[in-house]
Nucleic acid binder design. Structure first.
Length: 423
RNA sequence: GGAGAGAUGGCAGAGUGGUCGAAUGCGUCGGUCUUGAAAACCGAAGAGCCGCAAGGUUCCGGGGGUUCGAAUCCCUCUCUCUCCGCCA
């Protein structure tokens, strides 16, 4: 959430940012309501001062047993009280209207984020590894998954619905191996603390990280209990410190595996076949809490940690920076990592690494102390480290052999009981 | 799910309807003392909002009520603890 004071004092900047994002918000109405609010507060507080003084007076009069005078004073204060009630009600309403608008205003992209009209304007920053060449026609992963019985899409659709794959046998084990491997890497080499959070969160948490209220349609919802299956571990991890003042002298770095649940309404179709786009998928996530001055630097470290996963798996990838039109709602700056999948002949997004600045921290009221001991909002960052299904697609399609088997990357073999090939 | 108890500052823990933003202890920070440290002693320190500022205002789990005035009285919700039931 943006600071209302910032919006008030930098209205043109905010409007430009909205324009660059192709987003809309009623900033003028917001400022009008904000002004009304402050005016009402000033009147109410003036009256409260009067009331406080008068009430003390009444106490004194009562003490001196001047009951007649006390009664007259009581009557006067009662009238003030009535006006205060009216104003309080006004302020409450205005607060709510302000909140409704502000919660739906996206973050300001940092100044260096490239301005663009859509995802075709995302610059490629770097590429790692080499394009794999084959002396046969590489197959798409769904063929391989079917032949090797790694995933049962039909039965997943039967027991739940499309987009809910059933991993079977070596396919299931590969999921577990990847999760363990990535968590081990982040905890052992990147300084993370492993967390196993709840897989459903309440509405306050969803609001804290920015999923609610604007993106309610994207999430599953359990109505009786007002809970939401997590769309990403970012939600429980970031909200761990909601409404707290924490010490981030050393960055707090948390990692967690969770399944992720997304409705992905309207996403069905041939371009999303197989494991490319799912309603439920596994992901290892990294979340950082840092002092404001550190977040830009930490963002570069974080993207490196995500890249490291792919380097160790020996996968060809590229890093792109999202332009203003493509950057996420809560993000100030965002890198995506894409893996090349030779079977489907596409770059697949497997990680999104974002710096949120104080946007989430202000929503979730996550603070730290500055050098003077005063509370200030922390900066939050997160990155996928990484999402499983498309990673599995890339591993399977890049490592497939002419005989139909799939060579398992060296680093995963200890996690696969020493197995060298899926066959 | 049933019964009971509770929720106060970083933590522990007092609190009479007005003098309570709140005793006290611990912890934290600064100082004195010391070669240095410990101990002792002295001192400092909550958060939000409004305001250029001075200052004002609100906050004792959340919401509502009574009252001129509520941490204190009433209602309600949430959460925690204890016991019972159920259960991986």
């Amino acid at each position: 959430m943006l600071d209302i004071k910032f919006i008030r004092e930098n209205t043109d900047l905010v409007k430009t940012a909205l324009l660059n994002r192709n987003a809309e918000a009623n900033v003028d109405e917001l400022l009008e309501i904000d002004l009304q609010r402050r005016t009402s507060i000033q009147e109410a507080e003036g009256l409260k001062t009067e009331r406080n003084v008068s009430s003390k007076n009444i106490g004194a009069l009562m003490g001196q047993k001047k009951f007649t005078e006390a009664e007259a004073a009581k009557e006067a204060v009662r009238k003030i009280g009535e006006r205060i009630s009216v104003l309080n009600e006004q302020i409450r309403e205005l607060d709510e209207r302000i909140r409704d608008i502000v919660l739906c205003i996206p973050n300001m992209p940092v100044a260096t984020v490239p301005i663009g009209k859509d995802e075709t304007d995302n610059p490629v920053l770097r590429e790692w590894g080499e394009l794999k060449t084959f002396d046969f026609e590489p197959k798409p992963h769904w063929d391989i998954c079917e032949k090797l019985k790694l995933v049962d899409f039909e039965r997943g659709a039967k027991i739940t619905g499309s987009g809910f794959p059933v991993y079977t046998g070596q396919g299931a084990k590969l999921q577990r191996a990847l999760i363990s491997c990535m968590l081990d890497l982040h905890t052992a080499d990147h300084g993370y603390t492993e967390i196993e959070p709840p897989f459903v969160c309440n509405a306050d948490s969803m609001t804290g990280t920015g999923q609610l209220p604007k993106f309610a349609e994207d999430m599953y919802h359990i109505p009786g209990d007002e809970l939401y299956p997590v769309p990403t571990a970012e939600v429980p991890l970031t909200n761990l410190y909601r409404e707290e003042i924490i010490d981030v002298k050393n960055p707090i770095k948390l990692t967690a595996y969770t399944p992720c649940f997304r409705r992905e309404a309207g996403a069905a179709g041939s371009t999303n076949r197989g494991l490319l786009r799912l309603h439920q998928f596994d992901k290892v996530e990294m979340v950082n809490f840092v002092e404001p001055e550190q977040s830009a630097e930490q963002h570069e470290i974080l993207i490196g940690e995500a890249e490291n996963v792919l380097q160790l798996l020996g996968l060809h990838y590229r890093v792109i920076e999202l332009c203003t039109a493509d950057i996420g709602f809560s993000a100030a700056k965002c890198y995506d990592i894409e893996l090349w999948a030779p079977g489907v002949e596409r770059w697949l997004e497997v990680s999104s690494v974002s710096n949120f600045g104080d946007y989430q921290a202000r929503r979730a009221r996550i603070r730290c102390r500055d050098e003077n001991g005063k509370p200030q909002f922390v900066h939050t960052l997160n990155g996928s480290g990484v999402a499983l299904p498309r990673l599995v697609v890339a591993i399977i399609e890049n490592n497939q052999n002419a005989d139909g088997s799939v060579t398992i990357p060296q680093i995963l073999r200890p996690y696969m009981g020493g197995l060298e090939k899926l066959a």
